[in-house]
Simulated scan of single mutants.
Amino acid sequence: MGSIKIFADSTCDLPPEWIEEYRIGIVPLYVTFSENTYKDGVDLNTPELYRKVSETGRPPKTAAPSPADFIQAFTPFVEEGQQILYISLSTELSSTYQNALIAAEEFPEGQVTVFDSLNLSTGIGLQVMKAVHAASEGQSVPEIVKLLHKVRPQVETEFVIDSLDYLYKGGRCSGMQNLVGSLLKIRPVIKVIDGKMTPAYKIRGSREKALDQLLSNALSHLPEMDNDIIFVTHSLANEDAVHLKQALEAKTQARIVVTSNAGCVISSHCGAKTIGILYTKKIG
């Protein structure tokens, strides 16, 4: 049996140094401003994204990679005799998974396996790292997929959106909701449940209060954490991310707490200063 190549897409938001160290394949999604289309993380980074939003007054549209994109990405490794395991952005949020399945059909049976993370951002990244470590231990693709089926429902993804502006610009809330939210300093908290972005509750008041609540929510699950990786993922909120990282390092037994930057696709939907804590619970 050949070696296993783990793939994800650009929405996994893993640190670039991890992608390089563990040789994780990345297939970028697309962001489009008017007639100009960019590959997430390749042609456009998050600070550049926000500059373009300021210039145009609206966030970009986002799009999944095509089946041809996946075929192009997978082919060199298949030709080397490697098996591909691609862990995708949630099917509830994108056609990325379906397009990867179409691509997989162009290769010999069993050569390319596609797994739906039912998550986003480092909620995908957590599953990718589980797969990477399992592969390094010599597990087969079917064994890794079996593991991922157990890990997937244990991933906790919760983040605070700093402003309703991007939800409004993206058509996800009304102008009145945006106005009232801004006046009352309301920050929605989003959780990923069954692959969907689900409003969990709203925090009214200062950003500090919102961050304290985010941290408190994570720490309330301390006995259930698997003590492996905790991600603090953010969109241009590095100072707050470092603060949360230090608090989690002090109050959990996690092997590692890592800050990571949200890419262009995630940032397009959530906006600047969005920040989340993501981790996995123990497998029962």
Rank of each mutant, 00 (worst) to 15 (best):
L248R: 02
T122M: 12
E92V: 06
E20K: 12
G284C: 11
A135G: 02
I71M: 12
K52E: 10
S95C: 06
K196M: 06
T274S: 01
P108G: 14
G263M: 08
K191Q: 07
G195P: 02
A73H: 12
A247D: 10
V42F: 10
V31Q: 03
I24C: 10
N178K: 02
G110W: 10
Y166S: 00
C264S: 12
F107Y: 09
L215E: 15
H269D: 03
I283V: 02
T274C: 06
T91W: 08
I26K: 07
S206L: 09
F115S: 09
Q83M: 12
T280R: 00
N217T: 10
C270T: 15
F33Q: 02
P59S: 14
K39W: 13
D212G: 05
F107W: 01
T75Q: 14
V132H: 02
I277Y: 10
T233W: 01
A8I: 14
I6C: 08
L89P: 01
Y201L: 05
L236S: 11
Q139A: 09
F77D: 15
T122P: 01
R152E: 09
T75S: 15
L14S: 01
Q98G: 15
E158A: 15
S66L: 05
K273Y: 02
L118N: 14
E48K: 15
K245Q: 14
S268W: 04
S267Q: 05
K150M: 14
G2R: 09
G138F: 02
T46Q: 07
E143S: 03
G181F: 04
R152I: 01
S54G: 10
I6R: 12
K146S: 14
T56A: 08
P108Y: 07
L214C: 03
Q177S: 06
Y97V: 04
L167I: 03
N119Q: 07
L211V: 09
K273R: 15
Y50C: 11
S216N: 06
A63C: 01
A218D: 07
S94G: 15
L215F: 08
P188N: 11
Y166M: 08
I190E: 01
Q72R: 15
E239Y: 11
L89E: 00
W18Y: 10
I190Q: 05
A131I: 08
E106L: 13
L248I: 03
H149D: 15
D9Q: 15
K146P: 08
R207L: 08
L44T: 04
K185W: 00
E208G: 15
G276Q: 12
S260A: 04
A103N: 13
T37N: 05
V189R: 05
D43E: 12
D226H: 08
G276M: 05
N119F: 01
D212P: 13
L164I: 11
V180Q: 10
I144E: 11
T91Y: 13
L183A: 13
A63V: 00
C264D: 08
H149L: 11
V151L: 07
W18I: 06
K245T: 13
Y97L: 06
G263R: 09
L179D: 06
I26C: 14
I230V: 10
K281H: 06
N45H: 14
M176N: 00
R51D: 08
C173Q: 08
K281W: 06
